[in-house]
């Protein structure tokens, strides 16, 4: 295989890992974040703990997969991004720690104060986690202030209109898909309450609005996800943003109708097609520059040697299908609806 082909396949695999991670993470954090808004007692909360706790461990590893494959194949990208976003990545880490620990230990002690504090940690860390991821990903799509291999401003530049809109978009998609997930997987009132919650507080209406805001890319006038190599080459690529908008509207429609399963499916499709739009838009840049397009770091600038890429691709070719098989088996095996008192 030629060097370029190897590099392109690797880029696709990293994008793919992000998609697989985020479409799952969104409904798990969303269901978690909803718990304080909808549960009237600990029995209901336990249902949500089970439907999100059962899968979160395995899902989180997709994030590690996306990050370590970047480390091993585009180390320059990994190093540059993490150094620039030092504080942001530590905050993301704290959110991951808070969520990972609290979800497992809520009911390990009987004290009411303990349960309360773990529930609050669980909720806040879930919201923070998906919000930071949204800010990060939308900045990745639109680029960083990169010039001559150096960042020209500090990490605060991430929190621009587009970045914040991206964070909020992820959060609202998470809440919407989380409500659908709870509805599909539980018996009792809690699923309906989740669906009512996202409608009553207007969460479903924010999805298409925030999506448009991100696509408009405020304060990123010079760089846009729609002027990259692929979008310039063929209008066919515009099918992805169009689909994203259609799915977002269908999510909204199903939200108004209060249909759990459809909300779940369309919100996942919204997220998936949004990510595909972004990853196609930034190609071939791994770190696009929002100062000028040519300042960005491309996949060709950052890739390691062909032999190292081959090792990674062989590993992925063997283990991704295996992982898919047992993770899918797990979803199927444990789709039994979670009842009350079902610890």
């Amino acid at each position: 295989m030629s060097s370029d082909t190897l590099i392109n396949i690797t880029y696709t695999i990293i994008s793919f890992s992000w998609v697989i991670y985020l479409v799952q993470e969104m409904f798990i954090t969303g269901a978690s974040a909803l718990n304080m808004g909808i549960c009237k007692n600990e029995e209901e909360r336990k249902q949500i703990q089970v439907v999100s706790g059962l899968h979160f461990d395995g899902v989180e590893v997709w994030l590690l997969a996306a990050l370590t494959i970047t480390l091993g194949t585009f180390p320059l990208v990994f190093g540059t991004t993490f150094t620039y976003l030092y504080v942001v990545f530590f905050l993301l880490l704290y959110a991951i720690i808070g969520r990972g620990v609290s979800i497992e230990v809520i009911y390990k002690l009987e004290s009411k104060r303990w349960i309360k504090s773990m529930v609050v940690t669980w909720t806040i860390s879930s919201i923070l986690l998906i919000f930071i991821l949204g800010v990060y990903i939308s900045n990745v799509f639109y680029g960083f202030p990169l010039k001559d291999g150096e960042m020209t401003s500090n990490y605060f530049s991430m929190f621009n209109v587009t970045g914040i809109a991206g964070g909020l978009l992820f959060l609202s998609l998470a809440l919407v898909s989380g409500a659908g997930w709870i509805k599909i997987n539980t018996i009792g009132d809690v699923g309906d309450k989740a669906l009512i919650f996202i409608k009553k507080y207007g969460v479903i209406y924010t999805v298409p609005i925030l999506l448009l805001l991100v696509f408009m890319g405020f304060n990123n006038t010079d760089a846009s996800i729609f002027i990259g190599e692929l979008f310039s080459k063929s209008y066919l690529y515009f099918i992805f943003p169009l689909l994203t908008i259609v799915f977002a509207l269908l999510t909204l429609y199903m939200g108004v109708k209060g249909k759990g399963k459809e909300i779940f499916i369309f919100s996942l499709l919204t997220m998936g097609s949004f990510l595909i739009t972004g990853f196609s838009g930034m190609y071939p840049y791994m770190i696009p520059s929002n100062i000028a397009l040519e300042n960005g770091i491309t996949i060709y600038d950052a890739a390691v040697s062909d032999q190292a890429l081959e090792v990674v691709l062989i590993v992925v070719a063997i283990f991704f299908p295996i992982t898919f098989t047992y993770q899918t088996w797990k979803y199927i095996k444990f789709t039994d609806k979670v009842k009350l008192n079902d610890e």
Partner: peptide, 15 residues
Amino acid sequence: MGEVFGSPLILEVIA
């Protein structure tokens, strides 16, 4: 080190 350090880390994660 990414080129060499990466592959065991990737294997650790996905295998």
